[in-house]
Write a protein that binds this DNA or RNA. Structure first.
Length: 413
RNA sequence: GCCUGGGUGGGGUAGCUGGUCAUCCUAUGGGACUGUGGAUCCUACGACCCGGGUUCGAAUCCCGGCCCGGGCCCCA
């Protein structure tokens, strides 16, 4: 039996890589234009980084191992924790806000299915040092813009955990988590049953259900009536007005809980069609993790785009480009190398390395979809030129190597 | 971890109510055609996911594993 790739991993062939790179570059360009700087963190970290953030329970879904120095190491399952670790470790004294983006692979030991792999790629953004609605709004707008740049239009839901949490004052912390989980799942029946079991105050129950059901124009006003005129409501209101300025379409959704305790205020998710059960392509929010990793308490906001998921649904537009094949004969092979070398300074050039005969070389050029063929034969070389053949039109002309470059570049600038 | 469908040359397939050299297409290497491409022909290469079991005999039936797809749990 031949060796196969490990479960949940993938090989990417040239055609697909071209597509992935093209989208990746669009995301990268967008982030750069918004003033974010690219960073890179290690592929593996001490496992504590992730257990601190998410609890011991996540070890079951982490690729971890002991290294030769007996350290417990984890392949990163996500990138927010490493970025915050990096911040705490070496950037706490730098000018705020810090604006970063990253694109890297992550690893999770989970059951693979559509849009879900054991090695997957995340494109993320973090802004560190601001807790203001302005940064929340910018981050959301950037997320939307990035997806647009990839040709995608998602369904944006925005919520605020501070508002929903304000209802939980009298609830045990361990029960709060469970409630948030049920809210996030939109499992109303389960939520009702659970609230019954823990004998939650009936006033709070009613408010909770009304809150998570709020949608549309008046959602914020109604939320204020439910929870009072508290800070998170005003912040949220401000955020929405800023999103309007950005021209971002959104849906207020207090049902977004994102399960995690360290999210503090704004949370958002973006969904796209065509992905089956894994329809969330982007998720994020405002959080506080720096203190957890031993730094000063610092507000941050960020999100991650599931790169593999957007690749599933975004239209492939393979940018056509030139592809030149230099064809030679047994008596001009070496000259062809010199010509190819010259061409390669400017255009993508292929040269036969199979010792093929003329006809087979041109046939191969056709097979790989060459745009042009440069024929370097004795006749041409004697005249100090080559024949340039356009594979589309079939037309052929006698030109110099410099003219080849010029003519090809005219077609593929 | 659970439920469900599926694994036959590189890709796509037939066979799968057990029994001839496992079918066909395509791709790939070489050749026919001695400097002009998608054609044709010849030739080479190449598969029953792995391991057990039932049987005189298994690609075919049974069990386990691995892998792929879909769903659940989870989703940092």
């Amino acid at each position: 039996m031949e060796i196969q790739k490990p479960r949940g991993t993938r090989d990417f062939l040239p055609e697909e890589m071209a597509k992935r790179r093209s989208i990746e570059n669009k995301l990268r360009e967008t982030a750069t234009r918004w003033g974010y700087g690219e960073i890179k963190t290690p592929t593996f970290e001490h496992i504590e980084l992730f257990t601190l953030k998410s609890g011991e329970g996540i070890i079951g879904e982490i690729y971890n191992f002991k290294d030769k120095g007996d350290r417990e190491i984890a392949l990163r399952p996500e990138l927010t924790a490493p970025v915050v670790r990096m911040y705490v470790e070496e950037l706490q004294r730098s000018a705020k806000p810090l604006k970063f983006f990253y694109f890297d692979n992550c690893f999770r030991y989970e059951r693979p299915q559509k849009g879900r792999f054991r090695e997957f790629f995340q494109f993320g953004v973090e802004i560190i040092g601001s807790a203001r609605p302005e940064s929340d709004a910018e981050v959301i707008a950037l997320a939307v813009e990035m997806l647009n740049s990839a040709g995608l239009k998602g369904d944006l839901h925005v919520g605020n955990l501070g508002i929903i949490r304000s209802l939980f004052k009298d609830i045990l912390p361990e029960h709060q988590g469970k409630i948030m989980r049920l809210v996030d799942k939109k499992d109303d029946k389960g939520l009702e049953e659970f609230l019954e079991t823990i004998n939650a105050p009936s006033g709070m129950r009613g408010k909770l259900f009304r809150l998570i059901g709020l949608r549309g124009e008046n959602a914020v006003h109604e939320a204020r009536e439910l929870v009072g005129d508290i800070e998170p409501v005003s912040q949220f209101e401000e955020l929405l007005s800023l999103l309007d300025v950005y021209g971002v379409e959104y849906q207020v959704d207090f049902g977004i809980a994102r399960g995690l305790d360290y999210y503090t205020g704004m949370v958002f998710e973006i969904y796209c069609e065509g992905l089956g059960a894994q329809n969330q392509v982007c998720g994020g929010g405002a959080y506080r993790l720096a203190a957890l990793f031993g730094g000063e308490d610092t507000p941050s906001t960020g999100y991650a785009i599931g790169f593999d998921r957007i690749m599933e649904i975004c239209e492939a537009k393979p940018e056509s480009s030139e592809r030149i094949v230099v064809i030679s004969f047994d008596d001009t092979r070496k000259e062809a190398i010199v010509i190819a070398k010259k061409l390669r300074e400017n255009v993508s050039t292929y040269l036969d390395v199979m010792g093929r005969k003329f006809k087979d070389q041109i046939s191969y050029a056709n097979t790989i979809g060459a745009s042009h063929v440069v024929i370097a034969g004795k006749n041409e070389l004697d005249a100090g030129k080559v024949s340039l053949k356009d594979m589309k039109t079939g037309k052929q002309e006698l030109v110099t190597v410099e003219e080849v470059i010029k003519k090809v570049k005219a077609v593929f600038p």
